[in-house]
Amino acid sequence: MRYLVELARSLVRHKPLVSNFVDKDLRGRYIGSTVGLFWSLVNPVLSLATYTFVFNWVLKSRWSDYQPDSQVVLMMYLGIIVWGCHAEIISRCTNTLVENGNLIKKVVFPSEILPSYIGISALVNMGIGLAFVVIGVLLFGYAFPIADPTPVGHVFQPGEPVFRPFQFGLSIVTLPLLIALHLVFSVGLGFLLSTMNLLLRDVGHFVSALITVWMFGTPIFYPESLVRDRGYGWIVDCNPMAWVVDSYREVVLFGGWPDALMLVKLALVAFLSLWAGTRFFFKNKRRFADML
């Protein structure tokens, strides 16, 4: 707990420094390149196109009979940007201490701001992605609503998925909480991995492998029901990122309330992640300069 307080204090004290790093990071990403902001749309859309092609057309995996492809595309897109934010945070955090070794070794540098600024920067990125999602919901939920593909007179079996239109609801108020938990979880892992990578540089390679495995273990390109039906439900149940993606979809796309129990579990895991991450980080911090 002490280390969480230490982190908070440091962030308050070094606010100008953090904003400096975030500023530089975002500038480098959006202003340095010619089309700037456009890239934060293009990249997810490119991977969206790829995965849609592979999963939906080549492998013919269907989300559900009553979820039209146009809806699936936006659901996948939201999954990609949420996952992208998580992956960006953990992969960049892993290398950040080594990359900024020049600062840590040569000046008294508050290294705890490094994972923090990466989290903030990734959040801004995801925010831009979310803005496109919101536009999508406005378009396909309100301006040109997607028609219900259910045949007229279809009799629903108990438990059969029902078509749900895109819409905003009051539940959007939980979005900030959701984003906060998501970031706390990712940044906590970031603290842990950044320190581990100093102790053992191989951690960097491990993390890139982990990200790929983890991504396919998260229902981004396939519906959660698919894994459950095949008896692999535990993968989703043990995967906090699956809870995160699911909750985002519920809140942002369908205007529904996220599962309360899931939110509580997520809150616990996120807190545990940040607690353990900062503890490990701060306990080793005084030796960072020696380990680089």
């Binding site: 400096n20 530089k24 480098g28 020049n102 040569k106 000046v107 540098f109």
Partner: peptide, 15 residues
């Protein structure tokens, strides 16, 4: 020491 190689001179001063 204490410079970020990718930052410009101005940005490093701020940093």
């Amino acid at each position: 020491a204490g410079f970020h190689p990718e930052f410009t001179g101005r940005e490093n001063i701020r940093l």
